[in-house]
Amino acid sequence: MSAAVLSAPLAEPAPLAAAQAIEARFEPMTLERLDAVLAIEQAAYSHPWTRGNFADTLAAGHQAQCLLADGELLGYFVAMPGFQEVHLLNITVAPAFQRQGWALVMLDALALWSRGQGAEWLWLEVRIGNARAQKIYLKRGFARVGVRKGYYPLGHGEREDAVVMSLRLLEQV
């Protein structure tokens, strides 16, 4: 995915002013960006990915993109291509930029890239307790297709189920 410039309205425009647009672009996630990625990951999750998780996914050649605006990291996603499908492994918006539409921008970019790879399906798992994320996925056309029991760690030896969701990327023939 090459750098692309995108814009999204600010969530809370200034009083009596029209919504401003922020220009953002995608750039590949690199080892040099991992400190910034990890800072967001640790701020956003109770059980964040580790530096090793990100380094491994980069070494494996997974699709890993950072969304940047004015030199600041807004968010990122990591996806693993497979045969006629792509599996979203991680999508995160920096807490300071949540509820501004950036998750939708990243999902749209991922879907576009996936279609370009010939994928017919986009798959993901989301914590069963993460209703906000599920709402975002449903808004983009994902469907709930199953549950993975005990998929996510909760702490103290407990586990949380994951909702499996999929999005059909290609029109049915």
Rank of each mutant, 00 (worst) to 15 (best):
G146Y: 07
R159W: 02
A43E: 11
G71C: 10
G141Q: 05
L107T: 00
L170W: 01
E12K: 11
V5I: 15
P28M: 12
L154G: 14
M80R: 10
N90P: 04
T30G: 13
A36E: 15
N130T: 04
R148A: 10
A19Q: 12
V173L: 11
A60P: 01
E32H: 13
A79I: 01
A119L: 00
P81E: 13
P9V: 15
E27D: 14
F77G: 01
K149W: 10
A94P: 01
L6Q: 13
V147N: 06
L88C: 06
P81K: 06
L122W: 00
P48M: 12
L138R: 15
E158I: 10
D56I: 06
A8N: 11
A60E: 05
L104M: 02
E72L: 09
K139W: 07
R127E: 01
A119P: 04
R51G: 02
E171Q: 12
E120F: 04
V126Y: 03
H156K: 10
L31S: 13
Q100P: 03
V105P: 00
N53C: 10
E72F: 07
L67V: 04
G157L: 14
G101T: 00
A4V: 15
Y152H: 04
F77N: 03
R127W: 01
P153H: 07
A24Y: 00
K149F: 09
V163L: 06
R99Y: 11
A44Q: 12
C66K: 00
C66R: 02
A109Y: 02
I22Y: 12
P15E: 14
R140G: 05
A11N: 08
A8I: 05
A21M: 11
Q84P: 04
G155C: 10
V105G: 01
F54D: 01
V145C: 14
L73Y: 03
A59E: 11
H156G: 09
A69M: 12
A143S: 14
G157P: 06
D108V: 05
E32I: 09
L167R: 02
E85H: 00
H156S: 13
G61H: 01
G75S: 07
Q134F: 04
R140T: 08
E85C: 00
R33F: 09
A79R: 01
Q100I: 07
L31H: 11
P13Q: 10
Q42K: 11
L73K: 07
N53S: 14
I136G: 03
M165A: 04
A131C: 10
Q134I: 07
A17L: 15
A59Q: 14
Q42D: 15
L169D: 00
R115K: 15
E72N: 08
G75A: 07
L10I: 05
S7Y: 09
